[in-house]
Structure formats: structure tokens, C-alpha cells
Amino acid sequence: MRIERIAVKQEIEDLGPVDLDLLNPLIEKYKSKKGNLIPLLQGAQDIYGYIPRPAFEKLAAETGNELSDMYGVVTFYAQFRLNPVGKHIIKVCHGTACHVQNARALTTSLKEALKVDDGGTTEDGLFTLESVACLGCCSLAPVMMIGNETFGKLTGSQAVKIMKKIRISENN
């Protein structure tokens, strides 16, 4: 069940000040709309990469949504995060087609190369490694996605190579 994800590391942490003014256009856009809770949270996550505690409080105060409803929604859907993520999110597909084409090897190699667990972020804050259900590129299995770019027909070492390339260009 989804509650498992909360147990991993999903308490709302106070991670210092965030620029809350960034939320104003978003609040303006959705304030009076029915069913605005999910778009508001999605918008906040687009801004910060995760949803910081002060953002929850501001959204609650200015849109009339209850904090408890927000927390309920955020912990229900896989998309939402309560902690900062790396600059690049590596999503390794574990859909059926990728599974039978050995997607496990990609996750294992990346875990080892990045020295993080599934769902973890590297110390330098560059990468977050995630396993996702299906990216819909089954014909190119096994697949991973970094940002909006998809890479197909990979082996473990190829996946690591792609990650290292990004790391080198980031460090230069």
C-alpha cells in the first residue's frame, strides 16, 4: 500500500527559508477553481522541485484547502515529494516489458555507481534515482528517463555511462 512510502522518508521537514512569493501567480490562477488542490500542489512542486512545509501553509491559508487534505493527497500520489531532489532525476522503468528485459540490472548498476538507494539523492545533489512503473516506451525496453529525455535498449554499464556524461558536463 502507498503508506509504505511515507514510512521511508516522507515527513515534512523544515529545510530553511523558501521564496514564497513564487507561489502567487499559481494561487491567483487556481484560487477560485473547483478541484484545485492537485493542480496547486503540482504547480508548487514544479517551482521548488518538492513541496516545502511553508508552501503548504501558504497554500492552505490563501486557497481555503485544509492542511490535512493536502497531506492526504500528497502522500497518496506517487508524483509528490516532501523532500528536495537532485538536479537530475533518473527514472528507471520497471514496467512489465522492462522487467523481462532485465531492468533490475540498470537499477543495480546505477545504485552502485551513484552510491544511493532506490529513491535516494546523491551527496552532491546532482542525481535522484527512482524506479517507476511504466514510461510507455516498452518497445525500447529496458528504458530510463533523465529529465524529459528517454534512453532505450540499455545495459547496466550503458546507463552508468550516460549518467557519468551528465556528471562530467555538470562539473565543468
Binding site: 520497471h94 514496467g95 512489465t96 516489458a97 522487467h99 512503473a133 511504466c134 510507455g136 516506451c137 516498452c138 518497445s139
Partner: peptide
């Protein structure tokens, strides 16, 4: 909301 892993016709 094509969620079935292994199906991508809707996409």
C-alpha cells in the same frame, strides 16, 4: 491514465 505496464497505445 494508461497505467498498465506494457501498454502504450493510448500514448
Amino acid at each position: 491514465d494508461e497505467g498498465d505496464p506494457g501498454a502504450f497505445m493510448d500514448r
